[in-house]
């Protein structure tokens, strides 16, 4: 029996999901071809055929800058990745969007328990301990800037499932409501996609909160 994540992945594709994040998934008789969604139908793409190739494709953006946040909307174009089966697809997607399939599986099983931002910040020690002093207003602006699907800095294509605090308030009032509702296509195309779920503020956001507090 295939691992649960592969079964969930198969189900999403069978139900009509065309992609994940900025990646288009094309299936043909159990084999898969991935490319950037903006490269659909384009000729001359550099063909690769190992899931491990995803590591290098995902590492740098179009300008050659390192991509510390893999769900940022800056995946480079010009490549296609041919994969022989669902297992290789899962492996490649775990390199393109690390950890997101595990979150999806937990969500499908009602076992994904998002952590409120305040709890994440309170948990920090060492140099990030001060991040807990960020005000709600500062956090609102920060999340709006950092996590915004389109036009953010750097921006992120995940759907935010975590609240600001135990009141369950949204962490930012400045983001569109669909930023918090899964499954949505955060690229703005409105297509059926496999969602990239965010169950907890990432370390990059925590580091930004620390910078905001220290800049005061």
């Amino acid at each position: 029996m295939p691992p649960p994540i592969e079964r969930v992945l198969s189900d999403w594709i069978a139900s009509g999901a065309r992609g994940i994040g900025q990646i288009l998934i094309a299936e043909r008789e159990g084999e898969f071809t991935l490319c950037h969604r903006d490269d659909e139908g384009r000729d001359g793409l550099a063909a690769r055929n190992s899931p491990n190739d995803a590591v290098e494709i995902a590492k740098f953006d179009e300008e050659g800058n390192y991509r510390p946040l893999k769900t940022a909307p800056n995946l480079r174009r010009g490549w296609c990745l041919e994969l022989p089966d669902i297992s290789a697809l899962r492996e490649a997607l775990d390199f393109f969007y690390p950890g997101r399939l595990a979150a999806l599986l937990a969500w499908e099983r009602n076992r994904l328990h998002p952590t409120p931002l305040r709890e994440t910040l309170r948990r920090q020690t060492g140099m990030y301990r001060v991040a807990a002093h960020v005000t709600d207003g500062e956090a609102d602006a920060l999340v709006s800037r950092f996590c915004r699907s389109q036009g953010g800095a750097p921006g992120c294509l995940r759907t935010i499932l975590w609240a600001r605090d135990e009141t369950k308030a949204r962490p930012s009032t400045r983001l569109p409501l669909d930023k918090f509702i899964a499954p949505g296509d955060q690229t703005g195309r409105g297509e059926q996609v496999i969602p990239l779920l965010c169950q907890e503020a990432c370390n990059l956001l925590v580091a930004e909160a620390q910078r905001v507090v220290k800049a005061e």
Binding site: I5, K70, G99, A102, E200, C202, N203
Partner: peptide, 15 residues
């Protein structure tokens, strides 16, 4: 400092 995070890893190995 990268993905998947330590926190993400709590969700791995679900079988």
């Amino acid at each position: 400092k990268e993905e998947p995070s330590f926190r993400d890893a709590r969700l791995f190995f679900d079988g």
